[in-house]
């Protein structure tokens, strides 16, 4: 019955991805010339022209874009100009590093952020709450790269507790390369994950605090108190459950942003993930890698939004008939 809705959403998603790659291709004109980075300074003009021709970079952008779409539809994203290896291989190689980092940092943000937000909501005047709000203010205002460098200075250079760069002694489990297999490798993830988590953490603290304050003032909480339910049960089963609804939505939507913006954290810590791959590709004007990365990010965003849309359809009966009043 709601097949139509699903199909139209999927079509919309496909258009978004095509539009993103079209805009990306239009912008590639301005990132520079990869040929100048692929040959040494002494290569002759004839050599450069020959390379440009072989790579098809001398053709109009529209044509290059159409060919990219055609190949991408068949799952072929071409070779990286910088590394000479298939772009898909590079992305798949780097994907675990970024996913582990983002998932772990989201876990840090949730596990710390929710209790901190609750404390700040329940005892707004306590010293600890003020401290929490101060930390969240710092997290919101300091740029990520600066936090990363400060952490390296404190925990690597001065204290000598944590390694300053890279993924360390990772373990290979099948095709998946992980930092979770040993403490030795896990240590390498602490600082990058915390750096990435800080912004999310402050967001969650503020959201949970606001929602909790609102929920705690509502009638059903008062009734629950009047019925003499234990304070702990009121807090966790009734108040928090209600306060978390918007938090969960935001965390879900944020996940896409975090994957996309792991770039800065990965650059500071030389974390070999997709963000670092993209940063290098931009400096090199490595068009196939940039195009594939941007498409992948578009797919991630679209998928998350699609999932949210479908969840709404399941939850809200009015949307199922496809003519809901709310749209």
């Amino acid at each position: 019955m709601y097949l139509n809705t699903i199909i139209s959403r999927l079509l919309q998603a496909a258009w978004v991805i095509v539009a993103v790659s079209a805009i990306a291709f239009a912008l590639f004109q301005y990132v520079g010339d990869p040929v100048s980075q692929m040959l040494g300074q002494d290569a002759s003009a004839a050599d450069r022209d020959a390379l440009r021709r072989d790579l098809g970079l001398d053709r109009p952008v529209a044509l290059q874009f159409l060919q990219f779409l055609g190949n991408a539809a068949r799952g072929d994203f071409g070779l990286s100009l910088q590394q000479g290896r298939p772009v898909m291989d590079l992305i798949l190689e780097r994907l675990p590093a970024t996913l582990e980092l983002t998932v772990f940092s989201t876990a840090i943000a949730v596990l710390l952020g929710v209790p901190m937000g609750m404390v700040a909501a329940l005892r707004p005047r306590a010293l600890v709450s003020r401290a929490i709000m101060l930390v969240s203010l710092i997290g919101v205002s300091l740029p990520t790269f600066f936090i990363g460098i400060l952490l390296i200075l404190a925990f690597s250079v001065i204290l000598g507790w944590l390694p300053s760069f890279g993924r360390g002694p990772v373990a290979d489990i099948g095709v998946w390369r992980t930092n979770f297999a040993s403490w030795d490798a896990f240590r390498y993830m602490l600082m990058p994950a915390f750096t990435l988590a800080l912004f999310q953490l402050t967001l969650i603290v503020r959201l949970v605090r606001g929602e909790m304050m609102e929920v705690m003032g509502q009638d059903f909480i008062r009734f629950a108190r009047a019925r003499g339910l234990p304070a702990r049960s009121i807090l966790v089963r009734h108040a928090l459950k209600n306060a978390l609804m918007p938090v969960v939505t935001i965390i879900g939507l944020q996940l896409g942003t975090i994957i996309a913006f792991a770039l800065i954290t990965e650059t500071v810590f030389q974390w070999p993930g997709m963000g670092l791959l993209f940063a290098e590709a931009v400096a090199f004007a490595d068009i196939p890698v940039m195009a594939a990365y941007l498409c992948l990010i578009a797919v991630i965003f679209v998928t998350i939004n699609l999932a949210v849309d479908f969840l709404y359809i399941l939850i809200d009966p009015r949307l199922r008939r496809g003519h809901g009043a709310s749209r």
Partner: peptide
Amino acid sequence: IASGPTLVAA
């Protein structure tokens, strides 16, 4: 290590 400050830290 592409980032200068990180290179020095290492």
